[in-house]
Simulated scan of single mutants.
Amino acid sequence: MALLAYTAFLAFPFLWLVSTAFKPPRELARLHPTWIPDHPTLDNFRQALREQPLLRSAGNSLLTAAACAVVAVVIATPLAYVLARRRTRLTRAASAWVVVSQAFPLVVLIIPLFLLLKSWGLVDSRAGLVMVYVVWSLPFALWMLTGYVRAVPRELEEAAAVDGAGRLRVLVSVIAPLLAPGIVATTLFAFLTAWNEFFFALVLLKSPDEQTLPVVLTHFIGAGGTPDLGPLAAAALLATLPALVLFAVIQRRITDGMLAGAVKA
């Protein structure tokens, strides 16, 4: 019963978003709204696509999130191996810092990040935003992958070492294939973090051609703070669908990866 209630609680915002996206303005103005539109329409989607560059901003978000996910995982995998296998004071301190760094509020980080990127000429650029996203996603990716590496038996590495394999060969040929479920799960979480991120993109990107989808969604809110509900819901639904489709396609792989990492995390 509790599980059903929790599922309904999570599903309510999405179902209401779908309902709102297909309602005409007259139904949106009702005092007592209904779940199912009496006269469903696609006008909200047409208006949203006509008023704002959703496709271009979606492409920006896709490229930025994909680059962030790939770079973060490529960096985090060997670092996670070191943290998991070398239990020294330095690695313990690094592991503790990874956890503590997640508690820093974004407002504290944005000013030094902005000044640093400005000195490098990377403000208002996709490359600068990818760098920020990688730095922001790296601690969580490290924390996840470290648990997955600890779940891999050391005996496999020892057997490969006896056969003459070096550490790099062991990591690439032995550890990485066993980490595939965890790498997929970590990549997806890094991708979704960058896809949905708003604050850094709002501050660092000023050019309309470079803005990501979450920033463009705010353009549906008028100067007086009153949102255009129909087009906003339609645009938000379009922004949500890629993540849902991606999650549905690799859901089994994600579940396997999370269970694998939970064994010795």
Rank of each mutant, 00 (worst) to 15 (best):
R56A: 08
F9Y: 15
L122R: 04
A248C: 10
R167G: 05
P33V: 11
A66E: 05
A190P: 04
V249K: 01
P214N: 03
Y133P: 09
H32E: 15
G128K: 05
Y81Q: 04
A248G: 07
L28G: 01
P105Y: 09
V152I: 14
T77R: 02
L168Y: 07
L3R: 11
A185G: 09
L129T: 11
I250R: 09
A176N: 06
A58Q: 12
E155R: 02
L168F: 14
T186P: 03
P231F: 03
R87S: 14
T41I: 01
P139A: 08
L116M: 06
L106D: 12
G230C: 00
G166A: 08
L246E: 02
A76V: 00
R46M: 08
E210S: 07
T240C: 06
L229K: 01
V107M: 15
E51G: 09
L179T: 00
T218C: 03
T88A: 04
T212A: 05
D163Q: 09
L3F: 11
I250L: 13
F9A: 11
G261T: 00
D38V: 15
Q211G: 03
D163G: 05
S137A: 14
N60D: 11
K118R: 10
K264V: 05
E27I: 10
S95I: 12
A66M: 10
Y81T: 00
L213G: 01
L90F: 10
R150E: 12
K118H: 07
R87C: 07
K23A: 08
M131Q: 08
V107K: 12
V249M: 08
F45L: 13
S173L: 09
A260E: 14
I183L: 15
L205E: 03
V71T: 02
Q211I: 07
